[in-house]
């Protein structure tokens, strides 16, 4: 589904990603871990098409199409979803209104009829249960005055509404207490299917107790320096990142 080959990206001329290779197939969950500053969030942003980052080398194909050629909105319409680490506030625009615009633009791109208000509402009601989100919250201005947990739950709710084929969760666990973490993870797990894939970007192993990955990759200095199964995450939890850094630094000398 997603194939990343030798991806290099920089911001303001400073290289952040230095040759990422990754294959993600339908039905899989991949975790991207790594110390601060290793390029985890950059990878998520580059895949979603944030403009500040310049791709200097490499290819990314998504469902056989050149992802890097696409505008951010087209990537979304093709089925790429990014759950933001810091969801953005839009005053005066309710989540409902925002999502209705989004869902219908995605549907239009896919050649589907727009959902009318009644249908949209019934789909919404059904998806709301997944993340235990209250309708009152959805009538409020998008993310404005939301708690950390509410923002993240709202992200997963949006994901449920948009039904992406590839969901990228960028540090979705940051700022969540244990209850919120459980709710958010449950939501993500319920949305999993053999037809979609998830990339979980996280610093801590904690989230992976809830969203169990098929593969774990460790990112360091813009490269994937180690890949393994969920046991690798446990090892990192126990030993920290230093041993990986040493290994990687030694190998690159």
């Amino acid at each position: 589904m997603l194939s990343i080959h030798n991806l290099h990206a920089s911001i303001d001329g400073a290289p952040i990603l230095r040759g990422i290779n990754l294959e993600v197939k339908a039905g899989e969950v991949h975790a991207i871990m790594g110390p601060n500053g290793s390029g985890k969030s950059t990878l998520a942003s580059v895949l979603a098409g944030r403009e500040e980052y310049e791709v200097t080398e490499g290819e990314v194909t998504f469902k056989g199409k050149d992802l890097l050629e696409m505008a951010p909105e087209d990537r979304a319409r093709e089925g790429v979803f990014l759950a933001f680490q810091y969801p953005v506030e839009i005053p005066g625009v309710s989540t409902t209104n925002f999502l209705r615009t989004a869902v219908n633009q995605v549907r239009e791109y896919r050649g589907l009829e727009p959902l009318d208000a009644v249908k949209f509402l019934s789909v919404m009601k059904e998806k709301m249960k997944l993340v235990e989100i209250d309708q009152k919250l959805l009538s409020r201005s998008l993310n404005e005055g939301f708690s950390g947990g509410e923002k993240k739950r709202n992200e997963i709710f949006q994901m449920a509404m948009l039904e992406p084929t590839l969901a990228i969760l960028d540090e979705t666990d940051s700022g969540l207490d244990i209850d919120a973490l459980r709710i958010v993870s449950n939501g993500v797990n319920k949305l999993k299917s053999p037809n979609n894939a998830t990339i979980v970007v996280t610093h801590y192993q904690r989230l992976l107790d809830y969203i169990v990955p098929d593969f774990v990759h460790v990112l360091y200095k813009g490269r994937i320096v180690k890949s393994g199964t969920k046991e690798l995450a446990l090892e990192l939890e126990e030993k920290g990142y230093d041993w990986i850094k040493e290994e990687a630094d030694a190998a690159s000398v």
Partner: peptide
Amino acid sequence: QIFYCNQRGIS
């Protein structure tokens, strides 16, 4: 804000 909208499929 614009990128956030774009990422949800909004032009």
